[in-house]
Write a protein that binds this DNA or RNA. Structure first.
Length: 269
DNA sequence: ATGGTCCCCTGACCGC
DNA sequence: TGCGGTCAGGGGACCA
């Protein structure tokens, strides 16, 4: 499900309900996520006040004064705020009880994770993440530099979290279409000028997606239950066989490194 | 260091 | 209605 915009929408959605609240209990119904939910999670976080909810790449952090809960939503994860006592459905694996509210983690495929760290930004999963794509430090020069020794597809460069964090399959496809770059083009055979265009398009598309509440393909929901509306703004992702909105050529699909890639042969090179 | 391939898991969908 | 195959928004582990 979630790439940067959807994780950010989740953050914005839960933040007002959990910030400054104290965790009174943690209920782990199924600890078997990507990594086992640590047994110490409950003892670490119970009694602590959540001071802020932040995001790094696709990771969410529930920050307390003694450490942070690290949450990743994987492919199918979601967080909702419910009335405490609401009976859990299948795949509702973890609850954080916050007085009369309950922060509930649901993840049918269990590709996500919930971990605890005293120093989350130095955690092995976070410390090597590349810059945030919406930060000033991320620009065409950064991409160009990262691409110097890489002969693989530029799409893989965008989806490499060590190069830039938070970009997944949808937004990589959309940004490359917007920049007119073929997803399979070798990363080291793209000019600085084109990387500057690409980085600008990435920022523009990610910002627009956040504005629209993210992209709902099938099951992404905001905390209020509404879908994200950026799906209607997608120009290339999932549109194999349709006509390019820019030139009318038929959109193609090709699997690159195991992920579906969509592109227009006339507009992207 | 980079770039492949495999795998974790469930659910939706499609063709027969 | 059932069944098998395919696909899905992520990303770490492993190997060449």
């Amino acid at each position: 499900m979630p790439e940067l915009p959807e994780v950010e929408i989740t953050r914005l959605g839960i933040s007002p309900y959990v910030t400054h609240r104290t965790v009174q209990a943690v209920q782990v119904r199924n600890p078997h996520l990507r990594w086992r939910v640590p047994d110490r999670l409950s003892s670490k976080v119970t009694g602590q006040k959540i001071e802020s909810v932040t995001r790094r790449g696709k990771y969410l952090l529930l920050n307390t004064s003694v450490g942070s809960v690290i949450i990743h939503l994987g492919m199918s994860g979601s967080l909702r705020v419910l009335k405490t006592g609401t009976s859990p459905q299948s795949h509702d694996h973890v609850d954080f009880i916050l007085g009369n509210k309950c922060l509930r983690y649901r993840d049918p495929r269990r590709f996500g994770c919930i971990l605890w760290s005293n120093a989350p930004l130095n955690h092995r999963l976070l410390k090597n993440l590349g810059p945030e794509p919406l930060a000033d430090e991320f620009d065409g020069d950064h991409l160009y530099h990262a691409a110097r020794r890489r002969t693989g597809a530029v799409k893989n460069l965008l989806m490499n979290a060590r190069v830039v964090s938070g970009i997944g399959n949808i937004y990589a496809n959309e940004a490359l279409f917007a920049a007119g770059i073929h997803p399979q083009r070798a990363a080291n055979r793209i000019s600085l000028i084109r990387y500057r265009i690409l980085s600008r398009e990435m920022k523009r598309i990610l910002q627009a997606a956040v504005q629209a509440g993210g992209t709902t393909l099938r099951d992404f929901q905001r905390v209020n239950g509404q879908p994200g509306y950026f799906r209607h703004a997608l120009k290339i992702y999932g549109k194999e066989g349709e006509l390019c909105r820019r030139c009318g050529a038929r959109i193609r699909r090709k699997v690159i490194s195991g992920r579906s890639s969509f592109y227009c042969v006339r507009c992207q090179s």
